[in-house]
Design a protein around this nucleic acid. Structure first.
Lengths: 340, 340
DNA sequence: CAGTTCTGTGCAAACGTTTGTTTTTCAACA
DNA sequence: TGTTGAAAAACAAACGTTTGCACAGAACTG
């Protein structure tokens, strides 16, 4: 059916092993032979069978990507952008990307087991790890190469690519403080995600540095917003000492939050200032445009795959943790506090 | 290193072929043997090597996904949502998904060639096909199973899953007409995409049905918006007979368009009504919330993979074209024309 | 000019499965 | 007890590569 290395060998009048060596740029092949083989390959339209190749070479030239389980993270434009960066890097290095998605924890483990024990991929990228993530343990146990997009709370020797989320949240909060805000709330994401924890920490530090008190009752979670968000919002905004500004953990959540403030009769930035994170494309097109911390999403994806490929190439990684820069982008959603 | 079928065979005291048959639920294996083998597999932690398996069986249990080339389409939340549907279906059928992205047409062809001639995938999903798409020709030439997400303009015998985009645009336009609008513009996407053409056609038909003239000068393209969109928008809106409403080809483009109207001093829906397509999650959270045609993105992705898998299973497909329903969702971005 | 070292190829085994064919086992029957 | 036949299991070839080793011939060396 399909044309194999043997067909090429026959057509070029050489042995299959010679064809294989031409393919892998073996040094000790005469230029004349190389030409003959190349011509035969061209004429027959030969493409190597990757299954056969990786059966013997034990390398699949494929990277496994474990996608976030929750729908919310998945449909976040953050995700497509990071994916774009990953694919760009993988492709430029000749790697393919295999995706694994799962709806539950057991499915996720099963899926990863299939990928690594079935020898389908050479390495794995883990997105947005959780606290005490069993996936990390599984990979460590099998001594399988992987890189975290994000960081592990528990171990500092794992390969990972991350932003300094503590600093990013610190910067965002300080921006609001500099605008004269003294009552600043925080809207968080899933509490077991490391990034939620880091950004909350940065928020706290900025408050502390400015001598402002941290108030637990001014911290809302995204779940609260989704289930009866309107109620939660209006409740918070009707307090005598209400926040005049919010640090929101993610652009998409900021969209929803701003919408709910609007429905509760609050205007952004007139009544409430908002600054969030990620700088997805749409945050610029929002009304008002959202002030946000750009974390270089595309670059984040690109660098993660790059690190994994370096690892797979056998390079000794002297610096396992790569921290990429962030940058606060001030737009229309955050304004000077009127009273100040 | 890793545990193979031979190890299991030895541990269970049977031959490798017997283990293989247990794995594939061969009918003529005694229950006692099945139990023995299962226990050995469990004890050793056996997972089949998929490369070896597909080398001989010629089936990879993998679906190839050719992603859109342009960045704009890729980062569109439409994309992650459709991907989510695809992965859900693929996973429930035991298939994996391999992604191919490319930045240029030659790269794209090369990538698909690698996938099909390298025997990496059993079938392929093509997203958002273009007019006279060479990818389609390539796949037909190799007689390789594939399904279009969208439709082919040239051939009607190809497997595809689509919405009735003509009807959807017709519905959207008629909604604006019913609101009293008589001057209705159209904001289009990339002109070589089939979906652009279909939606423009539906828009024209609705105008014709209502006895309203079609004006080429009221059709803008997304490219126009991106490069100097502000200028283009304000130019159009300063015309003596300006449109009071727009049908916009896509939610994300609607975001940008509304933003630019805003900067040109126009309010939505007070000065201009907007209705768009896709109903991405954020369109509900926009300010104002966007009226849009829901096309069931997730379901679209799910059904596409489902059709491909049916094809791969050897089923004879009596109806090659699946058309999924759409539904207009009226929100705040479209309002009754004040003069009417 | 015989011996040695290169250089370029070919041979054959291996990778971990599947599967058509053959062999063994064993119960049932004459 | 010997024969038959079905059922269960084993054997062996194949899938398309890579790669260590062997080997022929050319090119040196002394």
């Amino acid at each position: 059916m399909s044309v194999t290395i043997k067909d090429v060998a026959r057509a070029a009048g050489v042995s299959p092993s010679t064809v294989s060596r031409v393919l892998s740029h073996h040094p000790k092949i005469s230029p004349a032979t190389v030409r003959k083989v190349r011509e035969a390959m061209e004429a027959l339209g030969y493409h190597p069978n990757i299954m056969a190749k990786s059966l013997v070479s034990k390398s699949t030239q494929t990277i496994g990507l474990v996608l976030p389980r929750s729908v919310e993270e998945f449909v976040n434009p953050f995700f497509s952008e990071v994916l774009r960066g990953m694919l760009a890097c993988a492709q430029s290095a000749g790697y393919d990307v295999l995706m694994s998605s799962a709806n539950s924890r057991p499915e996720e483990l099963e899926s990863v087991n299939r990928m690594i024990l079935g020898r389908r991929v050479d390495g794995i990228i883990l997105m947005a790890p959780r606290k005490a993530d069993p996936l990390v343990d599984l990979l460590l146990e099998h001594d399988f190469p992987f890189v975290l997009l994000g960081r592990s709370l528990e171990r500092s020797d794992l390969l990972c690519v991350n932003n300094n989320n503590v600093q990013a949240a610190f910067d965002a909060t300080r921006h609001l403080i500099a605008q004269g805000h003294e009552h600043i709330g925080f809207v968080s994401g899933p509490p077991d995600m490391v990034v939620s924890e880091d950004r909350l920490e940065g928020y706290k530090r900025a408050l502390a540095e400015a001598g402002l008190p941290f108030r637990q009752e001014w911290v809302m979670t995204a779940e609260m917003l989704q289930a009866g968000g309107f109620h939660a919002t209006s409740l918070m905004m009707s307090q005598p000492e209400r926040p005049t500004a919010f640090v929101v953990i993610d652009d998409v959540i900021a969209f929803g939050f701003i919408r709910q403030l609007y429905e509760a009769g609050m205007r952004v930035p007139d009544d409430v200032s908002v600054v969030s994170f990620n700088n997805i494309m749409l945050s610029e097109l929002s009304n008002p445009p959202i002030s946000t911390v750009d974390i270089g999403i595309y670059h984040l994806g690109y660098t993660t795959v790059q690190l994994l490929i370096r690892k797979l190439a056998g390079e000794t990684i002297t610096q396992p943790q790569i921290v990429l820069p962030h940058r606060l982008i001030v737009r229309g959603s955050s304004a000077r506090q009127p009273d100040a």
